[in-house]
Amino acid sequence: MNPERAGWLEPAEWYASLPSFLASATAVITDPQSRVLLVKPNYREHWNLPGGVLQGDEPPNLACAREVREELGVEPVLGALLVVDWVAPTDIRRAWFGFVFDAGTVVSPDDIALQNDELDGFEFVEPAEAYSRLTRNTADRLRSALGAKATGRTVNLVNGTVVSASA
C-alpha cells in the first residue's frame, strides 16, 4: 500500500463496505384504446405491471425486456425510461429501486403467450381500474409513468411521491 494512502481501504474492501439495494424493472404496455396491460401473479394477491427483479449483473432495460419475454412471450421494443422510484428499506428488505419503461402498444391480446408458472392471467384495463388493482406504490409508479409518456420527461419518485429537481 502506498504510505500516502495509509488508512484508505483497498478498492475491493471499499466496494464491499457500501450499501446494497434491490431493483426491479417493469413495463407499461398499452392496447390501441390506451388501456394498460396488467398481469396477475399466482404468488401475490394483487395485480402488477409486467416485469421483475434485476439479476446482479443486469441493467434495468435488459431486465425489463427479459421479464416481458418470459412472462408474456413477446419481444418488447422498449422506449423511454418513464420512472425511477426509490423505496425506503423496511424491517424485512433493503431499499428498492423501481424502474418503469415504455414498452409500446400490443395490437392484439392474441400475441401474448402467458407464462403459467408465475402468472394466472393478464388483462388490459383502463388506468383508473389499474390503480385500484395495484399496490399503492405500483399505482403511484403507473400514474407517474403515464404522465411521463404524455410529457416525454422521466419522473423521479421517492416512495411513490414525485420529487422535484431542486429537492
Rank of each mutant, 00 (worst) to 15 (best):
E4R: 03
A6K: 13
A6T: 14
G7I: 12
P11M: 10
E13F: 03
E13P: 00
W14N: 03
S17W: 00
V28N: 03
V28H: 02
D31M: 05
S34I: 02
S34T: 13
R35K: 14
L38P: 05
V39P: 01
K40N: 06
P41G: 04
N42I: 08
Y43F: 15
E45S: 10
N48Y: 09
L49H: 04
G51K: 07
G52P: 06
G52V: 09
P60Q: 09
E67I: 01
R69Y: 05
R69C: 07
E70D: 12
A80K: 13
L81C: 10
L81F: 01
V87G: 07
I92P: 00
I92M: 10
R93K: 15
R93F: 13
V106T: 12
S108R: 14
L119A: 03
G121M: 05
G121H: 03
F122A: 02
F122D: 01
F124P: 05
V125E: 13
E126K: 00
E126W: 00
A128M: 08
E129H: 03
Y131D: 09
Y131F: 15
S132L: 13
T135H: 02
N137M: 00
T138E: 14
R141H: 11
S144M: 07
A145H: 05
G152L: 06
R153W: 10
T154E: 14
L157Y: 01
G160E: 09
